[in-house]
Simulated scan of single mutants.
Amino acid sequence: MDLFSILAEERIKEAMKNKEFDNLPGKGKPLPKDDLAHVPSELRIGYKILKNAGMIPEEMQIKKEMLEIEDLIACCYDEEEKEQLKRKLNEKLIRFNLLMEKRKMGQTGAFKRYQSKLNRLF
């Protein structure tokens, strides 16, 4: 163990001895689900930094917008409005595919392995 780990461990033990952890909010409840568990470990820190900054990668934002448009289409009764939404969805799909092709992640590489998990998330 390095010095930092030893110091951290000692502080934790001291806090436990002083019962500083006894009244923490959420005590006894399960930890919140990690929404980045599906992302490969080598990419996770980058995604966390983006998420903490309130940003998400452009392809994820487009995918999220596509799902929102699909939901609107499913609820829409006006045929003219539905057609507008379908056009907008097609534009987003084209943009998404161009972005994936540009990033060389289209149907190969890391993205393919995690595409279904990303789709379920957003």
Results as ranks from 00 to 15, higher is better:
Lys64Val: 06
Met66Lys: 07
Glu59His: 12
Asn18Met: 13
His38Gly: 03
Lys86Gly: 03
Leu7Arg: 09
Glu79Thr: 14
Ser116Gly: 11
Gly26Ile: 02
Met55Ala: 00
Phe21Tyr: 05
Asn97Cys: 12
Lys19Phe: 03
Asn90Thr: 07
Lys27Ile: 08
Ile69Asn: 03
Cys76Pro: 01
Asn97Phe: 00
Ala74Thr: 14
Phe122Thr: 10
Tyr47Gln: 05
Leu89Phe: 04
Lys104Ser: 05
Leu121Tyr: 02
Lys102Cys: 08
Pro57Gln: 05
Leu85Ser: 10
Gly46Ile: 04
Lys33Thr: 12
Gly46Thr: 04
Tyr114Glu: 05
Lys63Met: 05
Asn90His: 07
Leu36Phe: 08
Gln115Ser: 04
Asp35Ala: 07
Asp71Ile: 08
Leu118Asp: 11
Glu80His: 12
Gly106Ala: 13
Gly46Ser: 03
Asp34Met: 05
Leu31Val: 14
Asn18Gln: 15
Leu36Tyr: 10
Tyr114Ala: 15
Ala37Thr: 02
Ser5Asn: 13
Met55Val: 03
Glu68Pro: 10
Tyr77Glu: 15
Leu72Gly: 10
Glu9Ala: 15
Ala110Asp: 11
Arg95Glu: 10
Glu14Asp: 02
Arg11Leu: 10
Phe4Ser: 09
Lys117Ala: 13
Lys19His: 01
Leu89Thr: 06
Met60His: 03
Arg103Trp: 12
Asp35His: 08
Arg103Cys: 04
Glu81Cys: 06
Lys82Ala: 00
Asp35Thr: 03
Met105Pro: 12
Leu99Asn: 01
Glu14Ser: 12
Glu59Arg: 09
Gln61Pro: 03
Met55Asp: 02
Met100His: 00
Leu89Lys: 01
Gln107Trp: 05
Asn119Phe: 15
Ile6Asp: 08
Thr108Lys: 15
Met16Asn: 13
Glu58Ser: 07
Tyr77His: 15
Glu65Cys: 00
Asn18Tyr: 14
Leu85Val: 11
Asp34Phe: 01
Ile73Tyr: 07
Met66Asp: 05
Glu10Lys: 07
Ile45Val: 04
Phe21Ser: 08
Lys17Pro: 05
Asp78Asn: 13
Leu24Glu: 12
Lys88Leu: 11
Asp78His: 10
Met55Gln: 01
Leu67Val: 01
Ala37Leu: 03
Lys104Gly: 02
Lys117Met: 05
Ile73His: 01
Asp71Ser: 13
Asn119Arg: 14
Lys13Arg: 01
Asn97Val: 06
Ile49Tyr: 01
Asp35Lys: 09
Ile62Thr: 09
Asp78Pro: 08
Met60Phe: 02
Asp71Thr: 13
Lys117Ile: 08
Ala37Pro: 11
Lys64Leu: 03
Pro30Gly: 12
Met105Glu: 09
Gly46Val: 00
Arg11Asn: 06
Arg44Glu: 06
Met105Asn: 06
Lys86His: 00
Lys92Cys: 07
Asp78Val: 08
Ala15Ile: 03
Gly106Arg: 02
Leu85Met: 01
Pro40Val: 03
Ser41Arg: 14
Ile69Ala: 00
Gly46Gln: 12
Leu98Asn: 15
Gly26Glu: 00
Lys102His: 07
Lys88Ala: 14
Met100Leu: 13
Lys117Arg: 01
Asn52Glu: 08
Lys19Cys: 01
Leu43Gln: 11
Cys76Gly: 02
Gln84Phe: 04
Glu58Lys: 09
Lys88Ser: 13
Ile12Cys: 01
Leu99Glu: 04
Glu59Met: 06
Phe122Met: 06
Glu81Phe: 13
Asn18Phe: 12
Tyr47Trp: 02
Met100Ile: 03
Lys88Glu: 06
